[in-house]
């Protein structure tokens, strides 16, 4: 039986409805993510057994080398994968819900491209061959700039979903061209860093990066969860949402800003990972249909799972080479996009 549970604040500003099926799926995915994270911690080019991890936690083994590998190399990397995957998954869900188009995602409407172009610009300006501290604010600013441009371009006619997607695709194309131009102008060492970064990689994640990203992700997701019921209304269509008392434009701006924050920060730390924002919400919807609050949870989990596994494959299958996780996400994402288009075409005739 699929029972419904409702949690509601006294003023009714916040309300969440959950079915048994949603709770079960969410718990299942959470456990799966936990197991995947533990698996990811246990594999690598250094031969370790899952038992080593337990010993290390319990302090029954004293091997500084092992501690270094678990604590400084693998753990921050796994946590970063979860944070970035969840950010992109939730950003995709929000955009899709807001725009009402299953193809909308940060990397389709140009937000990822804005972040990427700005970060490469930062690399080029500093002439650096490593990730400069400037990349983070630059990527955030780039994502925001694209969002502002999008809103400005559609403002006169109201933030109409279809127009937003079309203009976004145009901006994305322009920004890709800019990125390519910057790469051609860069010296080899900088271009090489930029290439790896553009594919999206969790290589050599450090703790301070995890600590910097975590509050941004958590904050943005919290804002989205608190306003999730407006997303539910928006997916009924603008007229209906307005009739039911949602301030359309204001809410759309809020959601756009939240999605931009999630995308910009994720791209800044892990590089321009495509497709997570597109695939994760779809996978979540395949599992269960629920209100947006529940779907934020599930999309975050599927996004995190995707990235954690892409990273495990990238860093273990081709040893001693460390392949950027983005390659595997793209390998999964490209056929998935085609499948979506095919289904969309069939449905609309």
């Amino acid at each position: 039986m699929n029972r419904q549970w409702v949690v509601r604040s006294q003023s009714d500003r916040f309300s969440v409805r959950a079915s048994t099926r949603l709770l079960a799926t969410g718990t299942g995915l959470s456990l799966l993510l936990l197991a995947s994270a533990l698996f990811s911690l246990s594999v690598g080019s250094y031969p370790t057994q899952p038992g080593d991890l337990l010993h290390l936690v319990l302090g029954t083994i004293d091997d500084p080398g092992l501690g270094l590998i678990f604590h400084e190399i693998r753990l921050p990397r796994v946590l970063m994968g979860i944070l970035v995957g969840a950010s992109l998954g939730v950003a995709g869900l929000v955009l899709q819900g807001m725009v009402g188009n299953p193809l909308a995602s940060p990397d389709v409407i140009g937000i990822s491209h804005g972040a990427a172009a700005a970060a490469v610009l930062a690399l080029w300006l500093t002439g650096s061959a490593g990730n400069t501290p400037w990349m983070v604010p630059a990527a955030m600013a780039g994502a925001l700039l694209v969002a502002v441009a999008l809103v400005a371009l559609v403002w006169r006619v109201g933030i109409r979903p279809a127009r937003l997607v079309l203009i976004g695709i145009g901006l994305a194309a322009g920004l890709s061209a800019l990125t390519t131009l910057l790469l051609v102008l860069s010296p080899d060492a900088t271009a090489m860093t930029a290439y790896v970064w553009l594919t999206g990689s969790l290589y050599a994640t450090r703790w301070n990066e995890v600590w910097q990203l975590a509050p941004i992700t958590i904050g943005a997701v919290a804002v989205i969860l608190l306003n999730a019921r407006h997303l539910d209304l928006h997916s009924l269509g603008a007229d209906m949402a307005q009739g039911l008392g949602s301030r359309i434009t204001r809410m759309r701006l809020l959601f756009l800003l939240a999605a931009v924050t999630l995308t910009g920060s994720a791209v800044a730390y892990a590089g321009a990972l495509g497709f997570v924002g597109l695939i994760a919400p779809h996978l979540a919807r395949q599992l269960v249909r629920a209100g947006h609050a529940g779907m934020v949870w599930l999309s975050g989990l599927t996004g995190a799972l995707l990235l954690v596994w892409a990273d495990v494959i990238g860093r273990t299958l081709f040893l001693p080479r460390d392949m950027p996780a983005g390659i595997f996400i793209a390998g999964l994402g490209a056929p998935f996009l085609l499948y979506l288009l095919y289904r969309l075409k069939k449905r609309t005739g």
Binding site: G44, Y46, G65, I69, R74, A204, L319, P320, R321, D322
Partner: peptide, 12 residues
């Protein structure tokens, strides 16, 4: 591994 992304675990 590659000069740009050497395998940190193996180094350790």
């Amino acid at each position: 591994g590659l000069e740009t992304q050497p395998d940190l675990e193996r180094i350790a």
